[in-house]
Amino acid sequence: MSELLRRMLFLPEEGSTLASRVDGIHFFIILTTFVVGAAIGLTGFVFLLRFRRRHAHALTPEVLAPVWMEALFVSVPLLFFLLWGALGYRDYVWSRSAPPDALDVYVTGKQWMWKFAYPEGPGAVDVLHVPAGRPVRLLITSRDVIHSFYVPAFRLKMDAIPGRYTETWFEAVRPGRYPVLCAEYCGLDHSHMRAEVVALSPAEFEVWRTQQGGDQVASGAGVAEPLVEQGRVVATRAGCFQCHTVDGTPHIGPTWRGLYLREEPLDTGGTIRADVAYLTESMMEPQAKVVAGYAPVMPSFQGRLSAGDVASLVEFIQSLRPERPVPPTVQEPRYELRGR
């Protein structure tokens, strides 16, 4: 029954323990809606036929709803609504309180990728390996704007907010690969900010963990530096350095040193802030906005760079900052992790 409903409603497979709970309340609501909707529709239809206009200026009797009817109109829906609210809230509380034996994973969203780091182990970009059948607690934050970590098959969603950690957890019921999407609009490549949860059987997970362990830094921050390096590699491979320098001297194209967030004059007049959106656009549509003083000779890299490549390139360009005054310590955000 519930499998049939799931297919009729186009829901993805139920990949987590949460999914079946969420679907349960979903089916309850949707079935009630259709029954009541049909009842109202039928009533309306009968009235429409039975009481259709017979002559233009007919007088109609004054009918007033008795009080019990008004009370019924209020109490019946209220009863259902509150019941759903209560049932949903029970599951919601459950979904927000991770079991104590959960495996911790730090999740960092940034434009436009997901980074995962295990407290004592390796980090990874865009692929989260977890053991099936064991609760996994996610501590989610963001490096730039708000993102939202969304696994449709798990019916799981939690925002990644810069400056604070949000927390959620899941338990994959069986091994498999489940797509991760970003559900909070985060800019140009929002729709390509995808990742994957790979649920492994516990034994396979241990094997994977030992393979990965050892050489990586044990914190989420450790993942960032390799990305810059990766960006440098991508830039070399794609031939960016034929035209762009990293030491501040202009060449065929503008230098990348200090480019990030610089106000650049355009050849069409006006200026543009070289933010992530502009940098990405320049890789994909170089002729759209050409910096004044440079020939529009750059080829498009559309289709030649993967989303990960673009992100690492942008990261690399971001890392090439000019010497700037360091902001006073006051302004550093306080990150408070709630202890367990």
């Binding site: 006073p328 310590t329 006051v330 302004q331 550093e332 955000p333 306080r334």
Partner: peptide
């Protein structure tokens, strides 16, 4: 633009 030496703690700005 906050740059007040005498009062620099989280939230001061």
């Amino acid at each position: 633009w906050y740059d007040f030496e005498a009062f620099s703690m989280p939230g001061a700005s």
